[in-house]
Structures are given as structure tokens and as C-alpha cells.
Design a protein around this nucleic acid. Structure first.
Lengths: 211, 211
DNA sequence: TTCTGACTCTACCCGTTGGTAGAATGTTAA
DNA sequence: TTAACATTCTACCAACGGGTAGAGTCAGAA
């Protein structure tokens, strides 16, 4: 009862235990933020959902903003980890893009990923915090544009404006986090493959396309 | 000075004048909500931006929720007007879809449209208000699915799952409202045409597509 | 046994903000 | 001149919620 199961520590060093608890808090917070919205969630709500006192949260996190920021930082980190793993491969631009989008969809269906997309509106964080996260996302953005450009160069992607194409892709994939349900019929991979197929071939039959 | 230029009334009936002022308030509110975020905007902020007193707003609108709700209602109405005008035409499913998406992009680059997309997160409105708007958007959603299904039937759209395809389309187009800038290089029509082209033909060259 | 750290409980402070009251002002039209 | 309306100004209330203080509790280590 003292330590709720959601953030129970197993046999670990004190540091690991502390980190695990922090993560447990953040996970729960992210889920509640996604359900009710950040501004409609009080710190007391998070504490209550965790079966824990309010001061407990302040024992592990600086303040409410910090809770949100850490959630978004984790999501951004996951995206970067994913990006790095994609880069390891030696593939055509299109194949790189496919791998990246699969990983992206995976992250966008986690609590942290959803939190990242839905809580970046102005006023959710201090400008400094926003800036920090934005540099991370800018890197992702430019990387996608670079990959598309590479695909155009190697012939695996049709000639198009990488910037606008990436906006369309990010739009479709980010939007997943607004409608995805864990208990729904579609999982991240299914969605990703479906979207990738759409973006690859388009939805107008080849024999109907003019020009 | 008594009546700021933003909501100045010309020679109209009192009712028209009142409506015009209401709309002026809503327009200004929508713009500020989009800039700073709804929860970070106080009613006093809106009043100040309009050069008007706070009680003035309550003279025309019920409360803060009402201001937001009316903004979203207007956007939804515009979407429905657009939908109706699309329907008037007797075209293939794909051509209908193209017309619809052009109109959709148009709305998504207005202050009200942007407001609609960015302020539907849980907790922004009372559940009842949310429900009212949701039925409006559901209609739009199902209409798009219907059009896609029609396109598949008449051969103008490739065989695919209308629901998932519509999610991808809405995602891409809704996302416009997150990055569009009035003073940017792209206008609504340019963006729409570009996206439509991407979704029509895909981004993988036909001669590279396997199968 | 005692110490320490982790944590709870209760209670409170205080800033912000939505919303209202009510009197005063000005403008217009009858 | 007067009545009606639109609007401002000032002031205020009440609720909420972030954040803190401080004393107490409990488990485990030494």
C-alpha cells in the first residue's frame, strides 16, 4: 500500500528504483493527460489515479510543467532512437522512409507519443521548454525531408517537393494519435502498412490517372 | 472609440449590427485562441485585444465556453455549406473527393477552421457541447467515406478501405491547420492541389512499384 | 534499538480567472 | 427633454488549482 503496484520497485539499486518510480509517475500522467487533457487534469488527479499523495509527486518531479515536459522528452527520445536505428540500414530512400514511418507509427500509438502530439499547442509549456523540444522535432522533420530527397535522387521516390510531402506524411501519421485506441481493431503496424501503401501507390487507379 | 473598428457597424438593422458585432468578437477570439491557446487566453485578453471591456463580451456571449463553442460551430457550419455545394455536382467519386478536399483545405486555413481542429481535445468544452459538434463532424466523416466508396464503385478510386483512407486524408488535411501561416508562401489551393496529387498518384514511381 | 529516508496527511497560502453587480456615461431617436 | 439602449469602469466574489510546510508514520538498515 505504501508503494502502489504501478510504480513498485523490484530488486534494483536505489537510483534505478527512483528512476523506475519517476517513470511510473510519468506513464500514468501521460495516460491521464491523454484522456482528460492536460489543462483539465490537476496534479491532485494524477496523484489520486496513482493512489499516491500530491507531495509524493513533488518529491519526484519539479512541478506540473516538468511532468508534461518529461513525458514529451521521453517521446522525443524514443523518436530519435528510432531514427538512429533506421539510419543503420543501407537502403533506398523509399525503403528508409518505410522503416521510419513504421517506427513513427509505433511511437505515435504509445501514451508518450500521443501526449507529444496533443500537447504541443502554444501555452502548454514555457517557451524555453518548447524550444528544447522543438529542436528535437525539427531534426526529425529535416531528416525525413532529407530521406525523401535521397529517394528522389536514387529513383525510388517520384519527383516532388520533399517539404510538402513530409508535411502530408507527418499530418497523416500524427493524426493517428488522435483516433488510435489501444482496444481498437487496428494496431500500429497495420495502420502504418496501410498508410504506406496509400502513400506509395495513391488511391487513383493507374489506368485512370491522366497524363 | 466607443465602437472599435474591428467590430464597427455600418448602416444595418439593429439585429444585423448585433450579429456583426458578435461575429467580430468571435473572429478576434478565434485568432487569439490560435495564437496563445484557449486555456492560456483569459476573457480579459480577448477584451483587451478588441479594445473593449470584459463585461462587453458577456453582453454578447454567454461565457468563455460559449465563445469557443460558437467559433467551432461556425467552422462546422462552413464545412457543411462546403459539403452541400460539393454534392450539387454530378461527378465521379474521385472528382467529388477532389472538390471536397479543396473546400476542406480552404476552411482549414481560416481562423475558425484552425480553431476547430486545435481545440477539440478533451476538456475544452462541456460534454454536451462536444457532442453537438461531434455529430456535425461525424456527418462529414461518413460523407467522405461514402464518397470514397462511391469512387471505388465507379472505378475512379482504387479498391481500399474507405475508413482508413479517410483517416489518412483527414490527418494530412487537418494537420495543415497546425503549420499553415497566412503570411507563408503557400495558400490553401496550392496546398490542396499538391496533397491531392500526392494522394492520387502516390510518391513511388509507377515503374518501381512491385506487383 | 535507533537512525534515516521515503512517504502520507492535513492544512494552508496565494495567484489567477471566470463571472457579476451596479453605477456612470454617452449617443440616438422620439 | 426624455427615454432607451449600449457600453464602460471599478470593484468585487468565489472557485480552483499549483505549490508548500510541517508534523507524523513506517520500513528497513546498521
Amino acid at each position: 500500500m505504501a508503494i502502489p503496484s504501478a510504480i513498485a520497485a523490484s530488486e534494483e539499486t536505489p537510483e534505478e528504483s527512483r528512476e523506475a518510480k519517476r517513470l511510473g509517475i510519468l506513464k500514468a500522467a501521460a495516460r491521464i493527460f491523454n484522456e482528460r487533457g492536460y489543462h483539465q487534469t490537476s496534479v491532485a488527479d494524477v496523484a489520486e489515479a496513482l493512489g499516491v499523495s500530491k507531495p509524493f509527486l513533488y518529491y519526484y518531479l519539479k512541478n506540473k510543467d516538468d511532468i508534461l515536459f518529461e513525458c514529451l522528452r521521453i517521446a522525443t527520445e524514443e523518436l530519435h532512437r528510432m531514427l538512429d536505428s533506421v539510419h543503420a540500414a543501407d537502403l533506398s530512400g523509399w525503403d528508409l522512409l518505410v522503416r521510419l514511418l513504421r517506427g513513427y507509427a509505433q511511437v505515435m500509438t504509445t501514451d508518450f507519443g500521443i501526449c507529444l502530439i496533443r500537447n504541443t499547442a502554444p501555452g502548454f509549456l514555457s517557451p524555453q521548454a518548447r524550444d528544447k523540444l522543438w529542436t528535437g522535432r525539427r531534426r526529425l522533420n529535416s531528416e525525413v525531408e532529407r530521406i525523401i530527397a535521397q529517394g528522389i535522387a536514387d529513383g525510388s521516390i517520384r519527383n516532388c517537393d520533399p517539404k510538402i510531402a513530409s508535411f502530408a506524411l507527418f499530418g497523416a501519421f500524427n493524426w493517428i494519435s488522435f483516433w488510435y485506441r489501444d482496444d481498437g481493431p487496428l494496431n500500429a503496424q497495420t495502420i502504418a502498412d496501410y498508410y504506406i501503401n496509400l502513400f506509395a501507390r495513391g488511391i487513383v487507379p493507374a489506368d485512370v490517372q491522366e497524363k
